[in-house]
């Protein structure tokens, strides 16, 4: 089973909660929006904890 984390278009408000937990996977750029970094491990427990921490539920984990 492979898990992949996706950003739901139009929802991110740049609160950076995900980035604070898993900076290897999420990065908020100067445009104030989150970007999923290439090569990040989406199955890692830390990345999934981060995906669950978004206050506007902008991150989805699909398998």
């Amino acid at each position: 089973m492979t898990v992949s984390i996706e950003l739901i278009p139009g929802r991110c408000e740049g609160h950076g909660v995900c980035e604070a937990i898993a900076p290897e996977v999420f990065q908020v750029d100067d445009d104030g929006m989150v970007h999923l970094l290439p090569g990040g491990d989406h199955e890692d427990a830390t990345a999934l904890a981060a995906a669950r921490s978004c206050p506007v539920a902008a991150l989805r984990a699909t398998s």
């Binding site: 740049g14 950076g16 604070a20 908020v28 100067d30």
Partner: peptide
């Protein structure tokens, strides 16, 4: 020890 933005884009970090 505080800072704030109003309609201003800046990473929260």
């Amino acid at each position: 020890g505080a800072a704030a933005t109003v309609n201003h884009t800046m990473p929260v970090r």
